[in-house]
Amino acid sequence: MSKISVIVPVYNVENYLDRCIESIVNQSYRNLEIILVNDGSTDKSGEICNRLARVDNRIRVIHKENGGLSSARNAGLDSATGDYIAFIDSDDYIHTKMYEILVKVQKDTGADIVSCGYQMFDEGDVPKEIDYDNFEFFEYTGTDIYNQLWDRDTSTVIQCQKLFNKDVFSHIRYPEGRIHEDVYVIHRELGKVNKYVFVDIPFYYYMIRNGSIMQTESFTSINDALEGFEDRIRFFSTRGLHEYEDRTLKTLFEYIQLKYRMLAKDNNRDGCRYLQSKMNMLLAMYNTGDFLENKELSKYRKMRKNYLILNVKIKIKSIIGK
């Protein structure tokens, strides 16, 4: 039976950690190596990790100084000995049958990455029950693998509801010091596989809690996402995959416009100015006339006009305030 190395980065999650690890140790698929990476927690998370390791000999604990999610994942990757790699965020949990079914699909299809769906739920709520006896899965090969970055979007990008062949991570590690680390690596992962499979059932339970990245997005996280998209553009460009280079650039423009509206609503003039300069740089750098429709260019012009209006509103507020 092939072994799965399940890597769980842990940082100040004492209220959620037992539930997460219980969902892993109770998997119907038993051949697991569970690597808990305590990333410098200042609460009782480290103690909980040690207690759990004493109860189940499949659990190993790595204690390290705080370096962020990417650093913790990389520490787990460097220590992993399994045939497959999987990740779980320590405030989330998984269905008991998740790995059994993902491994079965992998064996049946020969896929390098098998992904499943996920349920998002608010802290204090309970995910919906799922029928795991009836599900479909979809196989993708060739450049159609890259299409999943748009066809399934977030479900393709996030890492935690996936089963990876260990070879996917040869020469790939997560960028440390980044917030949107998944955006940086997913295109590189997909570029190494011959087959990608999506299992259409939400085995992964993704909790949205107060203070999480999903709940409170900072300007730093926006900038990280922008640079992740730019890295993806370069990735496709150097491989001559210009269709996907263009599609990523469109996605980047849409993301800038979305976040511009968010920052403008908060009267964040510095953030809006930065996004303006980023948009100007991209328009100058790429031959956008080949694929940007008039409607999209109109959106950009409106964005620039809105920035000027925002400056006027902020100045008026400052005068009235005085």
Results as ranks from 00 to 15, higher is better:
Arg173Leu: 00
Asp89Pro: 08
Gln159Asn: 12
Glu245Gly: 11
Trp150Ser: 10
Met279Gln: 12
Leu36Cys: 07
Arg73Pro: 04
Met98Gly: 09
Ile145Gln: 05
Gln161Asn: 15
Gly321Leu: 11
Ile130Ser: 04
Leu258His: 14
Pro175Asn: 01
Pro127Tyr: 10
Arg232Phe: 13
Tyr260Lys: 03
Asp231Val: 00
Gly228Pro: 03
Ile314Glu: 10
His242Gln: 00
Pro9Ala: 11
Val183Met: 04
Lys107Cys: 04
Ser170Leu: 05
Asp153Lys: 13
Arg60Pro: 08
Met303Gln: 03
Asn311Tyr: 02
Ser41Phe: 05
Val185Gln: 04
Ser90Trp: 10
Glu123Met: 07
Glu296Met: 01
Asn38Phe: 10
Glu227Cys: 02
Leu258Asp: 09
Ile316Ala: 14
Tyr93Val: 14
Asn194Phe: 09
Leu102Gln: 01
Asp122Met: 14
Arg273Phe: 15
Glu293Arg: 00
Gln27Pro: 06
Asn26Asp: 07
Asp151Lys: 10
Val6Ser: 00
Asp43Asn: 03
Phe229Ser: 10
Phe164Trp: 04
Phe229Ile: 01
Glu245Asp: 01
Gln27Ile: 13
Tyr300Gln: 06
Glu245Tyr: 01
Leu163Met: 08
Arg19Cys: 05
Ser298Ile: 13
Met262Trp: 08
Ile21Glu: 06
Asn287Asp: 11
Met98Thr: 09
